[in-house]
Amino acid sequence: MNIFRLTGDLSHLAAIIILLLKIWKTRSCAGISGKSQILFALVFTTRYLDLLTSYISLYNTFMKVVYIGCAYATVYLIYMKFKATYDGNHDTFRAEFLVVPVGGLSFLVNHDFTPLEFLLVIMYVSYDMALCGPGSNCSHCFQILWTFSIYLESVAILPQLFMISKTGEAETITTHYLFFLGLYRALYLINWIWRFYFEGFFDLIAIVAGVVQTILYCDFFYLYVTKVVYSERLPL
């Protein structure tokens, strides 16, 4: 664990808590994209299935439980408790245009299968590489679901950014949420540089997805720093 990864996790936690408190305190989810929150809940669910099978550290387990709990609590508040304040008319990004391609890509590009092996699996030729069957264990499933969650997380914020561009403005608290959410993966990029030089750790899938994810926030970061820092509303 290095300082960049720790501050990255704390920034992520701050974002999740800020959003949850904003909705809970104001009893409103105006300006919040429910679709992005569903996608984040899906990201955490598919990434943290290993909670059931492996123990890494108390910190790791605690944070995973908090992330999953807050994600589902946020989705509950948006679609159930404060449903009347959900702005569905502006939350129109087609999330299926994200989930389907990401799902396909996670099968084709992951740490377990090359595309050729994948075809063999599909044709069920190579028995031991079967995804889930008597001859395999669930590690392949977990690996593909982890890859799916990495790819999905990199684009999960798009419905939210799309909604803000449609409404033309965002509450200041929502911009703080987005700032910390974008900052977290930017800090993870520095963490991966650090781990590459000091631990020889290198995970191309996470790095490429993390770069894409951070690039999506660049436009917002510029607006955030030039506008919100001077405590103006964020006109786009």
Binding site: R5, R47, S54, I56, Y67, H140, Q143, N191, D203, A206
Partner: peptide, 10 residues
Amino acid sequence: DEETKEHDEL
């Protein structure tokens, strides 16, 4: 079949 990667990051 290489040991499936364990992911220690969140």
